[in-house]
C-alpha cells in the first residue's frame, strides 16, 4: 500500500511537531518515514497509519529527530563558512584587491594618527547603530511577510539572513571593547604592529561586507546551488 498525499502532509506536520522546522530537513525525514511505513504495511497491512508512523519514529531513538537536526545544523554551518570564504577570497584577487589595498592603507594611516581611537570608535559606533537599525527594520518587514504567507523555511536561507547580523553587531562591539580594554595609543606602536592591526581591521570589514551585503544579494542563487529541490517546490 502506498501513502497518499494527505499522509505525506501529515508526516510534514509530524516532523514540525517534533522540532524539525526547516523544509530541507523535513523532506528527507518525511521520505524516510514514508518508505518505512510502506514497508511496515507489507508485513502488517491492517495497521493504522499513526501506529505504523510511531513504530517508524521509534527507530530514531530516544532523542527522535534531534540528533539529525543538530548535526544538520553543524553541517550547514560548515557550508555557510565555506561560502563566506569563497566570496571573501575574491577580495584578495584582481580587481578587488585594489579596494582591499585602499581600505588597508586607510586603516594604516588612521591608526598612526594621535586621535585614531576616537576616529575608529566613533566610526564603529555609527556603523553598529546603523546595523541595529537595519536589523530591526528587516525583522519588522519579515514579521509582516510571515503574517501574509506561511513560507517554507530553509536552513541556509535563515543563516544567510541571520548570521550576518549576529556577526556584524557582535564583532563591532567586541572590537570596540578590545580597543577600550587595551587602552593604548596606536600611534606609539611599531609600524609592523600597526600593519597587522590594519590588516585585521580590513579583513573584518570585508567579512562584514560579504555576510551583510554580498551573500543576501546572492541568496536565491546560493539556495538553488545548495538545494536541488528549491526550484521544485
Amino acid at each position: 500500500m502506498k501513502l497518499t498525499e494527505s499522509h505525506i502532509q501529515r508526516l510534514y506536520k509530524f516532523t514540525r511537531e517534533h522540532f524539525v522546522y526547516h523544509y530541507d530537513v523535513q523532506t528527507e525525514l518525511v521520505d524516510h518515514l514514508a518508505n518505512d511505513i510502506e514497508q511496515i504495511w507489507v508485513a502488517q497491512p491492517h495497521l493504522k497509519f499513526e501506529k505504523a508512523r510511531d513504530i517508524s519514529f521509534k527507530k530514531f531513538g530516544v532523542f527522535g529527530f534531534m540528533d539529525v537536526v543538530e548535526k544538520k545544523q553543524k553541517a550547514m554551518n560548515k557550508h555557510y563558512r565555506k561560502i563566506l570564504w569563497r566570496f571573501t577570497k575574491e577580495w584578495f584577487t584582481m580587481p578587488k584587491i585594489i579596494t582591499t589595498g585602499l581600505i588597508f592603507m586607510l586603516f594604516f594611516i588612521v591608526l598612526q594618527l594621535k586621535h585614531s581611537f576616537l576616529i575608529l570608535g566613533t566610526s564603529f559606533f555609527i556603523l553598529a547603530g546603523y546595523d541595529v537599525f537595519l536589523f530591526v527594520k528587516e525583522k519588522i518587514k519579515n514579521k509582516r511577510k510571515e503574517k501574509k504567507q506561511s513560507e517554507k523555511k530553509w536552513l541556509l536561507k535563515e543563516m544567510i539572513g541571520e548570521s550576518r547580523r549576529g556577526f556584524s553587531v557582535i564583532s563591532f562591539i567586541n572590537i570596540f571593547n578590545i580597543i577600550n580594554i587595551l587602552d593604548l595609543d596606536f600611534y606609539t606602536l611599531p609600524l609592523f604592529v600597526i600593519a597587522i592591526l590594519a590588516f585585521a581591521a580590513t579583513f573584518t570589514c570585508i567579512i562584514y561586507h560579504v555576510s551583510w551585503a554580498v551573500l543576501p544579494s546572492k541568496a536565491e542563487e546560493l539556495l538553488i546551488e545548495k538545494y536541488p529541490e528549491y526550484s521544485l517546490v
Binding site: G61, F63, D67, V68, K71, K72
Partner: peptide, 16 residues
C-alpha cells in the same frame, strides 16, 4: 544502521 546515526553521517559527508 540506525536512522539517528545515518542522516548525521550523510550530512557530514556532504558538508565535507
Amino acid at each position: 544502521i540506525t536512522e539517528g546515526a545515518l542522516y548525521p553521517a550523510l550530512h557530514k559527508l556532504e558538508a565535507d
